[in-house]
Amino acid sequence: MVSVEEERLKRFLKQYDSREVDQTYIQLYLKLHDETRVFASIHERLDTEFEWMNFKARNGGHFNAQNSRNLIELIEEITNLNKALIRVGKSLVIDSEYRRVLEGSKLWLVSSGGSPIPDGFTPVEVEKYAAVFSLEDKTVVLEDRTRVELKMVGSGAFADVFKFTDPNHGIPIAKKKLKRESNNREVERFRREFEIMKKLSFPYIVEVYRFDEAEMSYTMEYCDETLENYVGRRNNQESFDFGVRRRIALQFLYGLNYIHFKGNCHRDLSVKNVLLKVYEGTAVLVKLSDFGLAKERGSDFTQTETELKGTRLDPAVSKFGEFMPVNDIYSVGFILSFIFKGVKHLVAGTSGLAQIVQKCSHSDPSARYQTVAELIREIEALTPETKSTPA
């Protein structure tokens, strides 16, 4: 059911249907769909006024009366558009250069007789070939029509992650939303990510809840921080000892072992994609996330892939579609090095830890651990004396 606010926004946007807009600007905003014409129209008209402003600043410093009125009206138009967007849980994001000029212009624009351009005016960097407007989510409407505030907590190449509090249970929930400019392949990959994670039910895998096809997003359990941030802040703390580090390492490995047991490969393991729920003291719960590049056994989607992707690629893999569990284990060596020593390179030397991580990431896949279960046994047997061995 369309809300009153959504209906108001539709009416606001409809007035641009008959407005003539240069196709050059239309092309910049095609991915936005409903907002394409309004953003293109405002962008085009702003460029006209900004170019004239630059010219007049160099020639007399007097911004003509009609141009002044045009820009005042555009500023009001942008304000009204943003109000309409906010009512449906979105917010207008303006390029920093354009925002600088619009905010500054409010101080000296007058509606009659022309406007004196201030001394020291910095010319506008007019942008004709890239979008200067975008949208940002500010609220989300729940199934019971309750609207709650969103806070952006992360942004990747293809999706943004937001946080909101479920008003019925008082618990934080994460919402992952695909970016609007994503292509069809990325849309398909995003759906697959949710479908794969929905099938995985395990304590050390992020749990997903509901997929929203209309806005291309899904909700999932909220985690407090990444492994990268958690270890980075605690690495030199005395309380962050060998026992704590080993518990984190084992939870991570239990999660990966389950993924492989279910016939999947993660293919993008990194210290950014391992999340943690943090409790009092040193208690944490590790959660593997970001399954956008995951490979399911027998999936047609991954069999045809050849382009290598991911944060840390196994040099032994020549085609992404040929990725196997042993190739995931290559990345594990780097993650274990970070958990136990706080370094992003492989731990060197002859210590028990060094031997484990070097075997994980051996250049020859046949010389690595062939299963995560083998690796778990090695970490379980690892002794705290390795902590004093230089990395």
Rank of each mutant, 00 (worst) to 15 (best):
M1S: 14
M1I: 09
S3E: 15
S3C: 09
L9K: 15
K10Q: 12
K14Y: 08
Q15G: 10
Q15N: 15
D22V: 10
Q27D: 10
L28T: 09
R37V: 02
A40C: 02
F50R: 01
N54G: 02
A57N: 02
A57M: 01
R58Q: 07
F63T: 10
N64Q: 12
S68M: 00
I72V: 01
L74P: 08
I75S: 04
I78P: 11
T79G: 04
T79E: 02
T79Q: 00
L81R: 02
N82P: 09
A84K: 09
I86W: 15
G89I: 03
K90G: 13
L92G: 05
V93P: 13
E97H: 07
V101S: 15
L102G: 01
S105W: 00
V110H: 00
P118L: 02
T122F: 04
P123S: 03
K128S: 07
L135P: 00
L142R: 01
L142H: 00
D144T: 07
K151R: 12
A157P: 02
A159E: 01
V161P: 07
N168I: 04
I171A: 00
K175M: 03
N183V: 10
N184E: 14
E186S: 03
V187Q: 07
E188F: 05
F190E: 11
R191I: 13
E193W: 00
F194Q: 01
K198W: 14
K198H: 13
F202K: 08
Y204C: 11
E207N: 14
E213S: 08
A214H: 14
E215G: 15
M216Q: 06
M220N: 02
E221R: 02
C223F: 02
E225I: 07
Y230F: 01
Q237C: 12
E238A: 14
F240G: 03
D241P: 11
V244T: 13
V244C: 08
V244I: 13
A249T: 11
A249Y: 10
Q251M: 04
L253M: 09
N257T: 10
N257Q: 14
H260W: 03
C265W: 11
D268R: 01
K272Q: 03
N273M: 06
V274S: 04
V278P: 07
G281M: 01
A283K: 09
S289A: 06
D290W: 01
G298R: 15
E307F: 14
E307K: 12
P315Y: 09
A316Y: 10
V317R: 06
V317D: 05
F320T: 15
P325S: 12
V326L: 14
N327R: 13
D328T: 08
Y330L: 08
S331V: 10
V332Q: 02
G333Y: 04
F334S: 11
I335S: 09
S337F: 12
I339N: 13
I339D: 08
V343Q: 12
H345T: 09
H345I: 12
V347M: 12
V347Q: 07
G349C: 09
T350S: 08
A354R: 05
A354L: 09
C360I: 11
H362W: 15
S366L: 01
Y369D: 10
T371P: 05
V372D: 07
A373E: 04
E374P: 07
I376H: 08
I376N: 07
E378I: 10
I379Y: 05
L382Y: 03
L382H: 08
L382F: 06
P384Y: 08
P384K: 01
E385Q: 06
K387W: 12
A391Y: 13
